[in-house]
C-alpha cells in the first residue's frame, strides 16, 4: 500500500514536468491575396485580417489610381500632362511626392533626381528598344537635367526648358506606404506586398515570426532558391536596386537603367546591388537608387549620417557583401559578409 503511495507521488512528479508545455496558439485570420499589373510590373498584396478582403480590394484600387496619376507613359495622367505642358497644379499625392523628391535630391547631393526623365527617354529605357545615344545628345540632355531648375511654388510645379519629371524612383515605394495605411485602416495587422520586387511588410507573420525576405542574387536573378541573403524583419520596406534589373548590351558592353545624371551614362560606381531597409517605403525606394549612384564610400558615409532612418546591404563589383550595423543580426547569407558600424 505504502509502495503504491510512493509510486503515485512519483507519477505526480512526472505529470508535473510534462504538463507545462503551454504553446500559444493564435486564431488564424482570413487571408486575402490579389495580384495585379500596374506601373509596368507585377504586384501582389497578401494580407491577413477580418476585413482583409476589403482591404486588399481598396489597396488594388489605390495602386491603379497612383499608376494613372504618376505614369510618364500616360499623356492624360497628371505627370504626363506636366511633362507635356511644362507646368501644372499638383494634386495632393503629386505635391507630396514632389516635396519629398526635392528634399531627397538635396539630402543625397543630387544622387536622387526626378528630372532624369529626358535621359531615360534618350537612352530608350522608357520604350522597348534602348540603345546607346550619340555623345553630343547625351551632353545636351545632361545640361537640361537637374532639380535645381524646377520651380515649385504655391502648389504649382514649373519645369525648366526641355525638362521632364519621372517619379519612377519613388512611386512604388510611395504606393507601398499608401497600401500599408489602407491595410491598417482595415484592421490588418499582418501583410506582405511586392510591388515589382519592392517588398514591404506589415507586422509579423500570423505565427508571430519575422518575415523572411530573400534578396535576389545578381548572379542568379532567375533562381528562386538562391539568394544574395535573407533578411528577417517586421514593419519594414525592403527595396533593391541593381544594374541587373533592366539592361541591354551593345558592342559587348552592358548598359543598365540607373542613370548618373551628371555624366548622362549609367552609374558605374563599383556597386552591383543596393538594398535599403527602412520603415518607410518611399525612402527605401528613393535611397536604393540614390545609394547605387553614390557608390560604396558615399553611400556608407550617407548611412552614418542617417543611420536611424535606414539600413542597407551593398554588393560590390569585387564581390564584397556589406551590411550596416542596424540589421547585422537580422541578415544571413551563404556568402561571407562584413558588418559596417561606426
Amino acid at each position: 500500500m505504502k509502495k503504491i503511495r510512493g509510486l503515485m507521488i512519483l507519477t505526480a512528479i512526472l505529470f508535473l514536468t510534462g504538463g507545462c508545455s503551454g504553446a500559444i496558439q493564435s486564431e488564424d485570420d482570413s487571408e486575402a491575396y490579389r495580384e495585379l499589373f500596374a506601373m509596368d510590373t507585377v504586384m501582389s498584396v497578401r494580407a491577413w485580417g477580418d476585413q482583409a478582403e476589403a482591404a486588399v480590394e481598396e489597396a488594388a484600387a489605390e495602386i491603379h489610381h497612383l499608376d494613372t496619376l504618376l505614369s510618364v507613359g500616360n499623356p492624360s495622367g497628371e505627370v504626363g500632362q506636366i511633362n507635356r505642358n511644362g507646368s501644372g497644379t499638383l494634386s495632393e499625392d503629386v505635391r507630396l511626392l514632389t516635396e519629398r523628391s526635392l528634399a531627397l535630391w538635396e539630402e543625397t547631393d543630387g544622387a536622387f533626381d526626378i528630372t532624369v526623365y529626358p535621359l531615360m527617354q534618350l537612352w530608350g529605357f522608357t520604350g522597348d528598344h534602348p540603345a546607346v545615344p550619340q555623345e553630343d545628345a547625351i551632353r545636351e540632355t545632361v545640361q537640361l537635367c537637374g532639380s535645381d531648375k524646377l520651380i515649385f511654388q504655391d502648389g504649382i510645379l514649373t519645369l525648366g526648358k526641355g525638362q521632364g519629371i519621372d517619379f519612377g524612383g519613388i512611386a512604388k515605394g510611395y504606393a507601398g506606404d499608401r497600401i500599408m495605411t489602407i491595410l491598417q485602416q482595415h484592421g490588418v495587422d499582418s501583410a506582405v506586398i511586392s510591388l515589382g520586387g519592392n517588398v514591404q511588410c506589415l507586422g509579423r507573420k500570423t505565427d508571430g515570426s519575422l518575415w523572411r525576405c530573400g534578396i535576389t542574387d545578381p548572379d542568379h536573378p532567375q533562381e528562386s532558391d538562391r539568394f544574395l541573403g535573407i533578411i528577417q524583419t517586421e514593419d519594414r520596406a525592403v527595396v533593391t536596386s541593381g544594374g541587373y534589373e533592366r539592361f541591354f548590351q551593345e558592342d559587348g558592353k552592358t548598359y543598365h537603367h540607373i542613370m548618373n545624371i551628371r555624366t548622362g551614362y549609367p552609374a558605374e560606381t563599383g556597386l552591383r546591388s543596393v538594398t535599403i531597409i527602412s520603415s518607410e517605403g518611399l525612402l527605401a525606394d528613393g535611397l536604393s537608387t540614390a545609394c547605387f549612384v553614390m557608390g560604396e564610400t558615399d553611400a556608407v558615409a550617407f548611412w552614418r549620417q542617417h543611420r536611424s532612418a535606414f539600413d542597407m546591404i551593398l554588393l560590390t563589383e569585387d564581390d564584397r557583401l556589406l551590411v550596416t550595423a542596424g540589421i547585422g543580426n537580422d541578415f544571413s547569407s551563404e556568402r561571407p559578409f562584413t558588418v559596417i558600424s561606426d
Binding site: 511586392s194 517588398v199 528562386s224 525592403v238
Partner: peptide, 11 residues
C-alpha cells in the same frame, strides 16, 4: 529546415 525558405523575394 531548408535555410533558403523565404516568404517573399526582393528584386
Amino acid at each position: 529546415t531548408s535555410g533558403n525558405e523565404i516568404d517573399i523575394n526582393v528584386k
